Amino acid sequence: MMAQSIITFRIPDDEKELVVEYAKAHNLSLTKLYRTAVLEKIEEQIELELLNDAIILSKEKEEEGISQIDMEQLLEGVYI
Rank of each mutant, 00 (worst) to 15 (best):
D14P: 10
I46Q: 12
L30Q: 06
G77T: 09
E40Q: 12
E17S: 15
A3T: 12
A3P: 03
N52L: 10
I80W: 09
L30Y: 07
H26Q: 05
I56V: 15
E17T: 11
K59M: 10
I69A: 01
V20R: 15
L51Y: 07
L39D: 02
Y22A: 01
E76S: 12
A23Q: 08
L48E: 13
G77S: 06
L18H: 15
R10A: 02
K61F: 13
M71Y: 14
A37S: 01
Q4S: 09
E43R: 09
G65P: 02
E47F: 03
Q4I: 05
D53Y: 05
I11R: 01
A37Q: 01
E63N: 14
E21I: 02
M2I: 13
R10F: 01
V19Y: 11
E43P: 02
L18V: 13
G65A: 09
E64S: 13
D70T: 15
E72Y: 07
D53M: 05
L51E: 04
F9M: 06
V20H: 05
E76V: 07
I56T: 15
L30K: 10
E64V: 15
Y79S: 13
E44G: 06
I55T: 03
D70Q: 08
S29V: 08
N27L: 12
G77Q: 08
I46F: 12
A54K: 09
Q68S: 14
I46Y: 12
I56G: 01
E60S: 10
G65I: 01
E76L: 06
K59R: 15
K61N: 15
K24C: 00
L50D: 14
P12M: 00
T36H: 05
S29L: 07
T8K: 15
Y22Q: 03
M2A: 06
N27S: 15
K41A: 07
E21K: 11
E44C: 04
T36N: 01
S5E: 11
S67M: 06
E44D: 13
Y79D: 09
I7R: 12
F9K: 04
M71K: 14
Q45F: 11
D14N: 12
E44W: 04
L28S: 07
